[in-house]
């Protein structure tokens, strides 16, 4: 059986410990970035831009101990729920789950293969650690609201984290869910928006304007904070202090760069679902500081 829920696993008062943790998270995020790109290269399909913008957020949640989950007992009833509402960024999500030990890394090498358990979009009935089948946008937040309501009905202390895209917020179902979250004062719900400002076809602001995004969430009754979604220390700091305000759901707007960490992909709409070549993988590995030996150990054939 799982031991008592711990608190503040991700936070530490010791500055040198924190520095080590942040350095470790930074490198692990880059390993996940490269893993996602290798998977996309393998299947010739994937969403490189969003994989790279969300990697630091995923790593901070899963690798710091902030998110209380148990890979040995993935259905542990008291686990925190993490819902990957932007299910198209499955390359980064699967790589994170594998790194956290939910399934063997070698499975990453089957990404989108015929009959693979690693669909283009996650399926909870195929993979441990997946809380919700996502892919069509605007599904994760209503499900997260339901999770948060369930915890409250059961008098349990676990929390629900939902990671959404920013273009995704054009789906009206998110705002239906936001209204429910504020009406019921769900302070056990934390929404993180991967604000990379690019959607499939163009920049969000050229498509359907999302700004002023923080004010919109505030108007919907959330306690809101903008953070640098690539600053692990800032992410650790804020995630160890949620809810931002008792009685209110939390929204963290993580300002990110789509394609972050790889020069040829950064901030380019074409890399929303761009597929890297072998040569580009080598360049990406160099820029991300991932060694050839680490690439070999990723479970994805080069």
């Amino acid at each position: 059986m799982q031991s008592q829920r711990s608190t503040d696993l991700g936070a530490t008062d010791n500055p040198s410990d924190l520095k080590l943790l942040v350095e470790s998270l930074r490198h692990r995020s880059n390993v996940i970035r490269l893993s996602a790109m290798m998977m996309t290269n393998h299947s010739s399909l994937g969403h490189t831009g969003g994989d790279l913008s969300s990697s630091d957020i995923l790593t901070t949640l899963y690798m710091s101990g902030l998110l209380e989950v148990d890979p040995v007992n993935p259905a542990w009833p008291q686990r925190d729920r993490f819902i990957m509402s932007k299910g198209h960024c499955s390359g980064a999500f699967y790589s994170t789950l594998a790194a956290r030990g939910f399934f063997p890394r070698e499975m990453l090498g089957t990404f989108m293969d015929p009959l693979s358990k690693l669909n283009g979009h996650p399926d909870r009935n195929k993979l441990p650690g997946v809380e919700a089948n996502t892919g069509p946008l605007g599904h994760g937040l209503p499900i997260g609201v339901g999770c948060a309501l369930a915890a409250r009905m059961r008098g349990e202390s676990w929390r629900t984290f939902v990671l959404t895209g920013d273009g995704e917020l054009q789906e009206g179902s998110n705002w239906e869910a936001a209204m429910t979250a504020q009406h019921y004062g769900l302070d056990n719900l934390i929404v993180i928006v991967d604000r990379n400002r690019i959607q499939q076809g163009d920049f969000t602001e050229n498509t359907i304007r999302m700004d002023p995004l923080p004010a919109r969430w505030e108007a919907f009754g959330f306690a809101v904070k903008e953070i640098d979604g690539h600053d692990h220390e800032a992410l650790l700091e804020v995630l160890s202090k949620v809810p931002l305000q008792p009685g209110k759901p939390t929204c963290l707007i993580a300002n990110t760069v789509k394609g972050k960490g790889v020069s040829f992909a950064e901030n380019k709409p074409a890399w929303h679902h761009g597929v890297p070549t072998k040569d580009q993988l080598v360049q990406a590995a160099q820029e991300l500081g991932v060694s050839p030996e680490e690439m070999e150990g990723m479970g994805v054939a080069r």
Binding site: P77, P142, I143, G144, V145, L149, S173, E176, A177
Partner: peptide
């Protein structure tokens, strides 16, 4: 809000209800 209503149902089931 019917889309939200069905999603909330799925989340409640995830949470053991």
């Amino acid at each position: 809000a019917e889309q939200n209503m069905v999603g909330v149902g799925a989340g409640l089931a995830n949470g053991g209800m």
